[in-house]
Amino acid sequence: MTILVHPMRVLSLLVVTLLALGAAPLAADVRTDAKKQIEFGISVAQRGLWREAIYRWERAAQIDPTYAAAQNNLAIAYEHEGDLDKARAAYEKALELEPNNAFIKQNYELFKEINDRTSRQDTQ
């Protein structure tokens, strides 16, 4: 029995296959690029250069919006800069991406303790 396949169908199947094959390395590249920014951010934050660290981690979050570490680190940097609203948003985003990450949970709890303390003072 001979099965006749339309050449256009073969072409579109080929394109879909190639796209699917290409997507995985692309995602890996994105994560690698974001990770480079994260690493650089960590090294400058350790030297006290928090603004540069924020720039790097914001870049990482742009490159890979699913990277929880970028949001976690950004939250810490915002906290250090006193931008508590931005810090809360970044922690919440990080937890949304990795709800079971113990480190992010711990950071967020410590942040909330400070934030609650200041808001408690405001209402006194």
């Binding site: 960590i42 934050a45 570490a69 976690n72 680190n73 480190f103 711990q106």
Partner: peptide
């Protein structure tokens, strides 16, 4: 803290 800005020291964990 009512009159002047204060700094609260702490430790956080950066992730890679």
């Amino acid at each position: 803290s009512t009159l002047s800005s204060q700094k609260i020291k702490g430790t956080r964990v950066l992730l890679q």
